[in-house]
Structure formats: structure tokens, C-alpha cells
Design a protein around this nucleic acid. Structure first.
Lengths: 185, 185
DNA sequence: GCAGCTGGAGAACGTGCGTTCTCCAGCTGA
DNA sequence: TCAGCTGGAGAACGCACGTTCTCCAGCTGC
């Protein structure tokens, strides 16, 4: 079996299991069972579980931001793109396997003990925030607005994760709309 | 030693350790060492670690909400009380041992595996939200505002926990001010 | 003083799991 | 055909930790 294929299969299984059941409650043997990649191969690809977790977060980050950007870019006007972020959140929250924000969860589990995880979480959150800043700038709105929208989005993710409801996305969107209008003067 | 005293000492140690290092990375032996309460006594007071965790979250919830309320109630006018919530968050974020929201962290760690933890997190978040709803009602503002302020507060907690900065509280406060003014029409 | 109870210290037990090792089936090249 | 390599299955190892057990010092009531 090709190494690259095994790697993808391992990461597919890791993502499904880590995201769905939490990182610490999933053993390397579970990853082997779900992926069909032997333990020997797993340890060739990832020298320790921590690196597998790191790679899982990294690959998910790329895909998550691509999905968000694809949805947002479909909207023509700059101000509509800002609100489209919250529409996408609502869509995401409604997915069957939604269990909150993978990075917030990972931080709660391992932030205190794994520097690699902390780094991934920081990088992901900073990238999301930078993206919002870009959207705000494109709309010709003041930079301070980006931080406010970011907090709304984070609050919605946490709350949707705990309550398993999509409603927080709509509440956040409505608040965002008010903030955008106020900022536009 | 009195049973009630031993219980308090155990909970003091549990809170310090669980909050500071995460729940899963603290062993019952660590709790014994820090509290000075023997393992035998610990297991008489709490039949299993899960119950100790539950009691930790429950007691912290009472204290956390008391501290918040004490700070907020010091402000005379209803609208000022709403913004005082965010002032208190800033103060909390700035404490030396601040490591994010204990319930969000606990949910990330154990939400997928412990029903007792999930119940505590739900109860705490609902109580905080109810409290905000009361403040919004007292200020004669529309109920929908409460959910928005709640999301801002949650976003600030998560972000302050990850970045170890107090700034999110001020950003959230500023956004809250705009939303309150818009809602007051 | 002495039987009997209480509670502490810490050893012991069992399990889960990250990581490594052993063994072997099946392929490759001469 | 046969030595040699590859990779898989799964046993084995070591450790951490939740939980329980053993032993004993110190106290109580007669």
C-alpha cells in the first residue's frame, strides 16, 4: 500500500474518531481498527500519537477554512460576505456529526499538556481572525469590528457545541448585522 | 478530623489542580498530596473521581456566580450593570491563575464521556444566561439582546483562555455597548 | 493495662493504553 | 526453488492511575 494513501486513511480515521469522541478516549488501536492501517505503519508515519493529533488538526484547519471561504466568496458584496460567515456557521452547526469546534475542544483536553496542540489551536484561531479582518477591510469598515465579530463567532461555536443547537449562529448573525450597521455609521 | 473540613480541603485541592492542569492529568494521588486528605477518606467522601469532579464544578459555579453578582450589583443603574458584567470578566481574565472557563475546558475534556460533567456544564451555562436575561429585563431592554450579550461573553472567555489576554473583555464590552444602544433605540 | 475501634500511609491490584517486539505469510529476484 | 525482504497481526512490555487492601499507630472505655 502506498505511503501517501495509508497516511490519508490514518488521518481520515483519526479525524472521525478524535473529533467524534474526544482525543484522549481514542486509542491508537482504535485508529488502526478504523483505518485499516497497521500499528507498525502508523508509527512509521507518525512517531507518536501527539504527532497524529497535530496532523489531524492541521489538515482539518486547511479544509475548514477552505469550506468557509468557498461559501463566503459566493456572495458578491463585501458586507454580505461578512454576514455569510454566520450563515456558514449555521450550516456547519446543523451537520449530523457536529460536536463543537475541534480546536476549542482539543485545547480543553490537551492545551495544558501539549505544546504541539497549543500551537495548532493558536494558528487556527489566528488564521480565522485574520480572515475576518480581511473581510472587514474589504468592506471598508473599521478594523475594530473584526475582533467583535470574531468574539461573536467564537461564542456561537462554543454554545452550539454545548447545546447542540444551530440557533446561536442566527443570534450571532443578528448581532453582527447590528454591529456592522453601527460601524458603517 | 471533621468530615466537613476534610471535604472542603479536598475540594480546595481539587479546584486548584483540576482548573490549573486539567482534570485528566491530575490523579487522585495528587489530590491527596495537595489536600492532605488520605485516599481512604477521599473515597469515603466521593465514591469515585467523577463525583469529585462534579462537586468541584458545582462549588465553583456557586462561587463564580456570587463573585459576578457582587461586582455587578455594586452598579446602580440597570444599563450600567449590563456592561459591568464585561468589566468583571476583564478583572477575572487578569487574575494570575486564570486558565479560561472551567466549564468550557471540562466540556472539552470530558463532555463526550461523562454525563455528570455535561450536566454541570449545562447547568452553569444556563444559569449564567438566565442571569443575563434578568439584567436585560431589569433594564427594560428586549429579551433577544440577552442571547447576543451571552455569545459575546462566551467568545471573550474562550479567546482569553487561549490567548491569555484580557483584551477580549474590552472588545466584548465595546460590542455590548453598541448592541445595548441599538436595542434601546 | 488492654481489647477494640479509627483513620492514615502507602503497598497492591487491575486495567487501559502508548509503544515496541515477535513471528510469519507472501512476494521478489536469481 | 529458495534466500531475503516487506508488511501485517497481534502479543508483549511498561507505565500511569483509579480503586482497594493491609498494616499499624494512637486513642477510647473498662
Amino acid at each position: 500500500m502506498d505511503s501517501a494513501v495509508a497516511r490519508e486513511q490514518a488521518l481520515d480515521a483519526a479525524e472521525k474518531l478524535f473529533y467524534g469522541r474526544g482525543i484522549q478516549s481514542v486509542g491508537m488501536d482504535d485508529v488502526r481498527g478504523t483505518s485499516g492501517v497497521s500499528l507498525k505503519r502508523l508509527y512509521q508515519l507518525f512517531p507518536a500519537k501527539e504527532q497524529l493529533v497535530e496532523a489531524y488538526l492541521e489538515r482539518r484547519d486547511e479544509r475548514w477554512r477552505e469550506r468557509l471561504a468557498a461559501h463566503v466568496e459566493a456572495h458578491g458584496d463585501p458586507r454580505g460576505r461578512l454576514l455569510a460567515v454566520f450563515d456558514w456557521l449555521e450550516q456547519w452547526f446543523g451537520e449530523d456529526d457536529f460536536r463543537g469546534c475541534a480546536w476549542i475542544n482539543a485545547y480543553g483536553e490537551l492545551g495544558a499538556t501539549s505544546a504541539r496542540v497549543t500551537t495548532q489551536v493558536d494558528a487556527h484561531k489566528r488564521a480565522f481572525r485574520d480572515y475576518l479582518e480581511g473581510l472587514v477591510a474589504d468592506a471598508g469598515l473599521p478594523g475594530a469590528l473584526a475582533g467583535q465579530l470574531y468574539l461573536l463567532a467564537e461564542g456561537a461555536m462554543v454554545t452550539a457545541g454545548i447545546t447542540r443547537a444551530t440557533e446561536p449562529a442566527r443570534q450571532a448573525r443578528e448581532a453582527a448585522r447590528v454591529l456592522v450597521e453601527a460601524a458603517a455609521g
